[in-house]
Design a binder for these strands. Structure first.
Length: 288
DNA sequence: AAACACATCAACCGCCCGTGC
DNA sequence: AGCACGGGCGGTTGATGTGTT
């Protein structure tokens, strides 16, 4: 359709974000919030698409994000939710405080999916592979949407803040989901709690996902008393300010981004500044 | 020690949905 | 009621790091 692109792509920078760009973006959002993403890059002095800014913020710069690999609990929760919701990553992410849809999607594609396949479980239908009718061609198999999850769209999470993952939730009866303990190698003692435990309720981003995986404000930063989206500039939790500071960076960063010893490739699980996409975030910004 | 292959993550693209005019 | 715009979502690709040969 003849829609205009989200931004005029002339002169728009693409590719990995630099620390400088991050700082500009964060600085701007701190001061002004984001009225509309389209103008954010202009006002912030960035040669980026507004969409790109939103993505960067949502997936990386948001102060309430957890970093590192998903815990067993989180992984289990993802599998469970995926069985119900299908590839509604934003919905799934809404149940995992501090996680983004992108992150979960990646984790699914790289870890969980393989794990399920190895176990003989179809990652799409969550059925045993041998029983899946069209299991012949893996590629095709995954191209068609799984029948089960689709109608569960309006399947709202419990409003009491707790996650009810057990079979008391409607919809499971026809979903021969694999058991959580079959997936994860380390069966937890108390499988009831949703992953990121210390985060109380998930102020799930309304039914439509809202501003991408809204998470409990109580996560990571105790000071983040307000939800991130639409928050007043002055109400940003302090970790955000780290972007402009040098000294306190290390200590607070540990708190903010508990590193879980990245399991290999990419930059995952590393200190975001050490493995900084822009080629290393030298806090002594003399290199810029 | 070097090269190759594999794994992982960040970012981009296009489409859809909701809202405002 | 219809149109346009902005935001959000899901899928896909590219870049980078790690492990193996």
């Amino acid at each position: 359709m003849g829609r205009q692109p989200c931004c005029d792509k002339v002169g728009v920078k693409k590719g990995p974000w630099t620390a400088e760009e991050d700082q500009k973006l964060v600085g701007f959002l701190l001061t002004h919030g984001h009225c509309c993403w389209r103008v954010v890059p202009k006002l912030a002095g960035l040669l980026r698409c507004g969409k790109s800014c939103r993505l960067r913020w949502t997936n990386y710069l948001r102060p309430d994000l957890k970093r590192g690999l998903l815990s067993d609990d989180e992984e289990r929760l993802v599998i469970d939710l995926h069985a119900r919701l299908g590839n509604r990553w934003s919905k799934i992410a809404a149940q995992l405080p501090g996680r983004t849809d992108n992150e979960i999607k990646n984790h699914w594609n790289t870890h969980i999916r393989k794990k399920l396949v190895r176990m003989g479980i179809d990652p799409v239908t969550h059925l045993p592979l041998q029983e899946a009718p069209a299991a012949a061609a893996p590629g095709e198999q995954e191209s068609h949407l799984p029948p089960p999850p689709a109608p569960q769209q309006e399947h709202q999470p419990p409003s009491d803040g707790g996650l009810v993952l057990q079979e008391d939730d409607a919809g499971e009866e026809d979903l021969p989901m694999i058991q959580a303990h079959e997936i994860t190698t380390v069966p937890p003692a108390a499988p009831t709690a949703p992953a990121a435990s210390n985060c109380g309720s998930v102020s799930s981003a309304s039914a439509s996902g809202g501003s991408a995986s809204v998470v409990s404000p109580s996560c990571s930063s105790s000071a983040s008393a307000s939800a991130v989206s639409g928050v007043e500039a002055t109400e940003w939790p302090e970790p955000l300010y780290l972007f402009g500071t040098d000294g306190i960076m290390d200590a607070a960063w540990d708190d903010l981004f508990p590193v879980t010893g990245g399991g290999g490739g990419g930059m995952g699980g590393v200190d975001p500044f050490d493995g900084y996409p822009g080629g290393g975030f030298d806090q002594d910004d003399d290199s810029m």
